[in-house]
Design a protein around this nucleic acid. Structure first.
Lengths: 114, 114
DNA sequence: TTTCAATATTCCTTGACAGGAATATTCGGT
DNA sequence: ACCGAATATTCCTGTCAAGGAATATTGAAA
């Protein structure tokens, strides 16, 4: 077969589907940060920050660069590219107008039972 | 304040971060379906299908149209639009080239300690 | 080599959630 | 009014993940 319909990786989503990890990712959007910075800005205890970063790291959302004592975490591009592609496979869904008249007409269309 | 940096809704993501629900959503990408059809195509027992659809419905990923005995489920556009906007806020991350030479040069850049 | 700073890891407890099985609901047809 | 098809709901159970607290690791500097 040739045309694959994009299948989104579950682990990426579940990594993101947790409030603190989501916040971490949003923080890292503005650039790499150390564990301490992340914990500080989010009001997390350091161990929890490390644990969340491990989850993000294992799922490939984030990568780490070791600088002596510090670990500098930054976002990886692949998961976001993958999400982008996946979401784009729902173009036709997103393009739906929410103009009320349009919607009303569409409703009438659907009333005909095939 | 005026410019909000897109904050993705966690419930949407956790609804999607489950294998069977992800499969359901991929099915619905090709059009609305009844509970029975979904359960059938995915090899799920009907109650589990209903439960997953409830989660998807509560999170706003899906909406239902009642037709006598049947419930016809279809994707809603909003969550995907939201995801699209959110992912787009990571443009600069996604634009990273994975061309090796490029990457090598970028590495050298990063070696300078500010 | 002792000490301090930054980070990771372990253990424990608790709550959420998915699947299985059984049952309830709701509608159309007869 | 009853029956059967389609779907939802409830109860139960096991698993897994998150937070707290304590501890282990690593590296740099004195």
């Amino acid at each position: 077969m040739s045309g694959k319909s994009p299948g989104m990786d579950i682990t990426t989503l579940s990594a993101l589907a947790e409030p603190n990890r989501m916040k971490i990712v949003q923080l890292l959007r503005d650039g790499p940060l150390t564990v301490g910075e992340i914990a500080g800005r989010l009001g997390l205890h350091q161990p929890q920050a490390s644990k969340h970063l491990k989850v993000l790291s294992d799922s490939g959302v984030v990568e780490v660069r070791i600088d002596a004592n510090r670990r500098i975490y930054k976002l990886r591009s692949e998961p976001f590219q993958a999400m982008d592609i996946w979401v784009q496979s729902f173009r036709h869904i997103m393009e739906q107008r929410f103009d009320n008249l349009d919607n009303y007409l569409r409703e009438l269309q659907n009333k005909e039972k095939p």
